[in-house]
Structures are given as C-alpha cells and as structure tokens.
Design a protein around this nucleic acid. Sequence first.
DNA 1: GTCTATACCGGGATAGAC
DNA 2: GTCTATCCCGGTATAGAC
Lengths: 205, 205
Amino acid sequence: MAKRGSYAKSAARRDEILRQALAVIDAEGYGAASVARIAEVAGISKTGLLHHFGTKENLFTEVLRLRDELDGSMFEHPNAELADVESAYLRVVERNTRIPGLVELFTRLSIEATDPEHPAHEFFLRREKVIGDRIAATVDAALADDVRGNVDPSLVALIVMAATDGLQQRWLLDPNVDMAGALEALFRVFDTALGTGSAQREDHE
Amino acid sequence: MAKRGSYAKSAARRDEILRQALAVIDAEGYGAASVARIAEVAGISKTGLLHHFGTKENLFTEVLRLRDELDGSMFEHPNAELADVESAYLRVVERNTRIPGLVELFTRLSIEATDPEHPAHEFFLRREKVIGDRIAATVDAALADDVRGNVDPSLVALIVMAATDGLQQRWLLDPNVDMAGALEALFRVFDTALGTGSAQREDHE
DNA sequence: GTCTATACCGGGATAGAC
DNA sequence: GTCTATCCCGGTATAGAC
C-alpha cells in the first residue's frame, strides 16, 4: 500500500486546506467562504485546491466530518448516564454559540444534502442514525419501568435532534435565542413525562 | 390614489409571476427554480421579471408571504382551544408533506435570511413572533393552575416551532420521517408534563 | 501526483433603448 | 413599464508545466 512520500504531503496539504477553510468560515462568515478566498488564504490556487477535493461541496463535507470528529469525543463512553449525556449535549450546543459560521455551514449543507445526489447525503443520513441511536439507547436505559414499552426512545431522540437543529436556525436568525436553555427545558419536560428525572425535581413547592 | 390602468396590470403581472414561481418550485423542485426558468414559464424575459421584484430574493420572499397568507387562515380564531390549535397545526404540517419544493424553499430562505441585510430577515423575525405569541397564548390559557407560573409558555412555543423546522429538515433528508407523528408525540409529552392533557390520556392500563 | 493559467458557463444584476 | 444586451461573479473543466 505504501506509495511515495507524496502521499503524506498530499494528506498534510488537504488537512491544511481544511483548517484554513474553517478559519475563513469562522472569521469572515459563510458568505465569504468562496473557493477562491479559501485557496488564497491557504496559499494555493483555485484549481490547486480543487485538485485535492474535486468540488466545493466535497470540501465542505470534509470540513463537517472533521468537526464531527472533534465533537464526537463526548459521545465516547457507551454506558454514560442520561444526565451525563444531557450535559455533554448541552456543552456542545453552547460551544456552537461561539462558531456561528460553522453552524451556518452545517445548516446550509444539511439542506443541500437533501438531494440524494449530493456528496454529503450519506454523511448526514449516517450521522443522523449514529447520534440518534446513541441518544435512544441512553433514554431507553433510563426509562422508568412503568412507562417502558409505552415510549419509543428513538422518537424521543428524533424530537431532541430536530429541536436542536431548529433552535440553531432560530439562533442564527436571532442571536438572543437561548438554545441551551430551551433544550434544557425540553429535557426536563421529558424527565417528568417519562419518569427519567432521577431524584432532582424542580424546587417548586 | 387611483393612477393609471397600468397599476392594475402590473399587479396582475406580479401575481401571475408569483403563481408561476410556485408552480415551478413545486413541479421541478427548488433547484430548477432559476430566474430564467421562472421567467420562461411566466412568459416574460429575465429582466422583465426582475423589473417587478428587483431581485430573486425579493421574489421568493413574496412567494413565502403569499403562502403564509393561505396557511394563516387556520390561526384565525383567537380563542381556540389548545386541542384545536394542535390539530390545526398538525394539519398544516401534513399538508406540507405534499409540497416538498415549498418546504425546501422555506427552509433555505430561512437560513439565508439569517443575514440582517437579507430582504426576508424582517419577515422571518415577524413571522416567528406572530406564530410564537399565538401558540404561547393558547398554551398559557390551557395551563393547569398548579404549574402556571412555573412554566414559560413562550419557551414551549419556541420548542414546538424549532422542532417543527428541524423535522422538516429531516423529512427533506429522509422522506420516511413522520413529521406529524413526532409532533403529536411531543404535544402529548407536553400535555402530561404541563397538565394540559384535558381528559383523554392514552389507553395504557 | 501536485500544481498553475486559462477559458467556460450558469445565474443574477445593471444600463439604456424602445 | 417592458425588454435586449451586456456585464460580473463564482464554480468547474481542460491543458499542460513541474
């Protein structure tokens, strides 16, 4: 499988371009992130960049994949408690607050990837399933006995993920929207409805 | 205020163009809805069309406004019961299932309108507020006495709207997603958590 | 296998004739 | 108020240098 040293060089170049793409998106916003601009910042020509990624869509897909890898660390321990997963989830959402450009990229791409021909289509379907299964499993494990069987954990996961994306949309539109706060409220509603609230109920009367 | 006959003519032309734009989006998908194509279908030149709307963004903003007017009929009666509003809401969502092109337009535009300079920015902010207030008021009126004061109805509205948008995104990605089903489940969760479930609880034991 | 220069093309905007 | 002609910008395809 070993080829020439150029492989390593190419991989490094790709990586550098991805990082610069991220930097541009973050510093100048999604709108400024044209192929030409990213190439300029990365110190390469337009076509030089495209040599590595083929199309802009591919490039951006890779950017998201890279980002998911970083965020994914939190979903590592498979047997985490519901409360742990919830707070980890909220932490990611809060962190997103500091990278609006990436959130915009994510949201836009998730719409464009709607088309089955889009290079990121499979990526999003898979991402959906992986995260959904993880959430569903955690919810299932935390379910009180008297409701288990009457609740579909994967439906809970679907709602949570949908709410998250919708909140990101709204936050992009209006930065005053408190994403984490709303999600936390949703979690608490689920807790009381599903009996997963462990010990801590809110302090009202 | 009366001017020349051309006013009526112009208004009629605008209206015709809007309808044709809707038709193209619906029949050929959002991707096909270029200014050139819409102009062609409407029997006018590219620049002729732009004369009436200025930019493509403006045109699409008007399309959404028109659509909201039609959907808005359901939110008419201000003192409707929670259950009525819920089922009306679900009906709209179900109807959207038959017009994927419009759902895509809505979703895409809501992202692009993120930019405060975008012509649809105010439109979305206002839409957000109007619908949110309506939902919040209905929830507030239905709240059980022992939880009122501990629940923020506008937060409930935010979550419902966010979930709706997120579900639309997911449904565009994967048509198997049951938007109405998920929303109904969410409503039921709120019912049990907030005590707004009136009489009908599910039939489990 | 890595890259540059150039040319191309689709889509939206603008100037100005009618 | 309508349209033709033109321009601009961004992404893509091709040819070929290193």
